[in-house]
Design a protein around this nucleic acid. Sequence first.
RNA 1: GUCUCAGUAGCUCAGCUGGAUAGAGCAACAGCCUUCUAAGCUGUGGGUCGGGGGUUCGAAUCCCUCCUGAGACGCCA
Length: 576
Amino acid sequence: MTGIGVNQPTMLQQKLTFAEQVADVLKVPAEDIVEHLEYPPNPDLGDLALPCFRFAKTLRRNPADIAKDVASALAEHPAFARAEATGGYVNVQLNRDALMRDVVRTLQSHPEQWFSRQRGQGRTAAIDYSSPNIAKPFGVGHLRSTVIGQAIVHLLEADGWRVVGINHLGDWGTQFGKIIVAYRKWGDEAVVRANPVRELFSLYVRFHDEAEKHPELDDEAREWFKKLEEGDAEATRLWQWFIDESLKVFRAMYHRLGVQFDHYLGESFYNDMMQVVVDELRSKGLLVESDGAEVVDLSAWNMPPCIIVKSDGATIYATRDLAAANYRHDQFGADTLLYVVGAEQTLHFQQVFKVLELMGRSWAANCQHVAFGMMKYNGERMSTRRGKIVYLEDVLDKAVAEAKRIIEEKNPSLEDKDSVAEAVGIGAVIFNDLKSYRMHDVDFRYEEVLNFDGETGPYVQYTHARACSVLRKAEATPGQAGSVDNLVDVHDAEWRLITVLAQAQEVLERAVDELDPSLIARFLLDVCHAFNRFYHDCPILSAEAARDQRLALTDAVRSALAYGLHLLGLKAPTAM
RNA sequence: GUCUCAGUAGCUCAGCUGGAUAGAGCAACAGCCUUCUAAGCUGUGGGUCGGGGGUUCGAAUCCCUCCUGAGACGCCA
């Protein structure tokens, strides 16, 4: 366990203290013991537990005896209030006062320190996320890459990384030939200007309909894309116009979602870097001719070949991704490249990463495809071509309207109803997408997104607002409410809350290591549940001796939730 | 066909670097607001952890195999 610089009283530190105290007894390095410490299934048993069965073989003693020795070794240390051997387990109870003081004090003033020890110092990650296609609507399908990516940006930054967020817009390819053809045939400038993305998209859908009956349209589209590649003035003008209009709509959507990028770099940005990649591959002898195309043979790694130059001489997305990877490494100084892209592109990224390795890029090992499952609707795959898509804008609007309805019903005197409704409605949508495992496919259901009860974004936001409300009633300043200087007996509900809050660092580190925001989402739900239980069981303002410590604890929860919500990209209204 | 990923309560999921009676939420039912925001809290019912083998003191978790679903499998991204 190197790297714990400051002597932080997090649960991680408690574990380390435990491990160091018993390392001699078990004749095992402390860091190995930390790995095996766990939380007892039932809080009555204790706060931390060590199963001793695994040490039985090497020590040639039975687990129950080992547990007894471990327990007596722990009894000597002030951090532990009680250590007990039960069967092959050692259960300890921590010193409540000490941990509570440190959790609350740190959290009140510096929540970011409570969550992290800045392991990413000196590292830079470039992360590719959202990356929608120009002239196509922003559907709920794109939500996943967008919100997962944005949350990962926050997680890495929280752990000390420098992060470069990149929106790899789909602004190139034969699809633009199609849209140009469709626009020239059936489009109307005024109509497009009024609602650019939706109108361009319906032209695109119409193109596909008509092309089924009139295949010659496809040839026309190819011709127009070729003109675009050759710099034809008309083609370029239309293409640029589509991009400008799309970006206006996308930026508005990102603003609503609280999503930001350091760079918008579309696929077309790399056009003039392609030849360099091809030349390098060729000079390194990696390219082989195959059916008229030039490919990198990957059969030694049990993968199909990676196509670099198509048989018509044009490059392809793999080439583009190679160029982009080099650019991100060289220009942004990124030592780690992340791609938040759907799981259906897994093979493609494996190929690209392998080719980078073959090109001798040492950092290829730090490239990672952060894959996620597919968003479906009514169990069916959404299809942009056929126009079968759920517009994200519609989803957000419905969620916000639902939030507004609930506010009118429950808290009609609330100030800033509209901005709170916006924060809560959008929070519901974002949280819903972040809370479950990335790799699962999700079937989009309105009834689920529009339900604000239980394990939802609004529940977390509500709990935060509730804590804020208590502080307001106490006329206390957030960040310095109450005090933990003089503690009176810590109630079980208070303690339960402390033990959850104390796990923040472990959770953040695991979320970073696994690039999985859902761990943070579930942690926040645990905090909320523990706080609401506490809120229900323990009077705060009307408490006598315990008033100060409970107020401080409430403030600590407020701080932790505000910070956690920020990590996930949700707003934290102080009232709702 | 090959490869990858998934399969846990009616539904959505957690638990998966092996450990103590498999946990939440939703839905259903039953309680709790003259007291700090009931978007809350408590309780009840609900499980062959896809099936079968194996490893182990111990398997939802690791290995093998089969079944089911999704995705990928060369000139789209």
